[in-house]
Nucleic acid binder design. Structure first.
Length: 391
DNA sequence: TCTGGGGTCCTAGGACCC
DNA sequence: TCTGGGGTCCTAGGACCC
């Protein structure tokens, strides 16, 4: 192998951490998630999975399938602490570390045999280290590129190790099957079936040009690559743009524009805090509305100035709401700060200079307080005065 | 049985500029 | 008097993933 990549995936991560912290739930079907009427399963233990419970399933359905399940509220602080422990072991094991999410990461193990031995032996060693030091199990995939390694880690779970020899990659792809290939969701799958293609072999039998013609430039090339075990290049490079978003689902549905506006006001502040905390400013604000029938609309606005102050964000979002809201029941409302970019010296920025001294001080004071962990909500009628900070 | 919350990327049409 | 093609930005919506 000229290149070797590992994909390391923590098994049922949130559930495993809860079991670690509370061994009494070990062996029981465990569901992580809120207990609300519109909540979904975040993660669940393997015992719960045997009842047909799975991530993203509605909680009501999950509890119907497994009424005796133990439901635990997610504790993200604890998970991210545990995640850091694991990631630090992985990142010091080999170079080319790339964390993909709270519970998975890639390693580049190319030309590393001298350090930890052949890839299989090294992967076993890494798994043992993680188990010994954190008490958690991982599944590891080893292959010549990241895409295959990612599929491989999912092939045997939990506590699995799957190695894909380069000469058997197409065979492996066929065994995984079209339905489980990364990047092919329900919609793409249906459009593939509608074109009379039933599996990975059918797709492989077509020329790249035919696939591009049948689908689109991007999807055609993507399909052509993945059925051959060629990395489509999804896990490389820096992301071009970023966004920060916040959304809330209501139960029951909300019909009052004033109530919606209050939520927008709160979310504008949340996002403003997060943006300031991460030293980013945004180019645009987006609003998302999902009505009772699940129909979802979004709109956005790009002002001529950069955004980070809660009052600017709120003003735009509130205007979008007034323009778009159709007076029917709303189940979800969301706010997005789009096209964010790093701005180290926000205080020095043009917009801040245009603002009144008072307003600037207020934003700064709120930022400081929010950093100190205090929960501050500005009174909504005021843009330039400090309220008595209820709640 | 309905369907969270946080993200990224793609598509397609229109505006505008060269 | 009719009309090119490329590039970039903006918007709305869709797809996918963890």
């Amino acid at each position: 192998m000229s290149t070797v990549f590992f994909h390391i995936d923590l098994d049922a991560f949130f559930a495993s951490v809860e079991i670690l912290d509370n061994p009494r739930v070990k062996g029981k079907p465990l569901i992580i998630g809120h207990r609300g009427p519109r909540s979904v399963v975040s993660t669940c233990s393997y015992e719960a999975r045997s009842y047909g419970v799975h991530s993203a399933q509605s909680m009501s359905e999950a509890l119907r399938r497994c009424p005796e399940a133990v439901v635990v509220e997610p504790n993200f602080k604890r998970y991210s602490q545990k995640s850091k422990e694991v990631m630090s072991i992985i990142s010091s094991f080999a170079p080319g570390f790339m964390q993909m999410s709270i519970d998975e990461a890639f390693l580049d193990y190319s030309n590393m045999e001298k350090i930890h031995g052949l890839a299989g032996k090294a992967a076993r060693k890494l798994k043992e280290m993680i188990k010994a030091e954190t008490g958690l199990t991982v599944s590891v995939g080893v292959a010549e590129n990241r895409y295959l390694a990612k599929l491989a880690s999912d092939y045997h779970k939990p506590d699995g190790l799957t190695i894909v020899p380069p000469e058997r990659k197409e065979e492996f792809i066929d065994k995984v099957g079209l339905e489980k290939l990364w990047g092919i969701g329900e919609s793409t799958l249906n459009s593939i079936y509608r074109k009379g293609l039933r599996n990975t072999k059918d797709i492989r039998s077509l020329e790249k040009e035919s696939l591009v013609h049948l689908f689109s430039e991007n999807l055609g090339n993507f399909l052509y690559s993945i059925v051959r075990g060629i990395d489509p290049g999804l896990f490389k490079g820096e992301a071009k743009s970023h966004s920060l978003s916040s959304e809330r689902t209501f139960y029951p549905d909300v019909y009052s524009i004033d109530a919606l506006d209050s939520f927008i006001f709160q979310m504008a502040q949340e996002l403003s805090f997060r943006a300031l905390g991460e030293h980013v400013v945004a180019r645009n604000v987006g609003l998302k509305i999902r009505y009772s029938d699940f129909s979802t609309y979004s709109c956005q606005y790009t002002p001529s100035y950069s955004l980070y102050s809660s009052s600017d964000i709120y003003k735009i979002a509130s205007r979008l709401l007034k323009e778009k809201y159709n007076n029917s029941g709303v189940r979800l409302i969301g706010l997005v700060l789009g096209s964010t970019y790093k701005a180290e010296e926000i205080e020095q920025m043009e917009l801040f200079r245009e603002k009144s001294e008072k307003e600037r001080k207020l934003e700064k004071a709120i930022l400081e307080l929010s950093k100190s962990g205090m929960k501050i909500i500005k009174a909504r009628s005021l843009d330039t005065e400090v309220s008595d900070n209820k709640q």
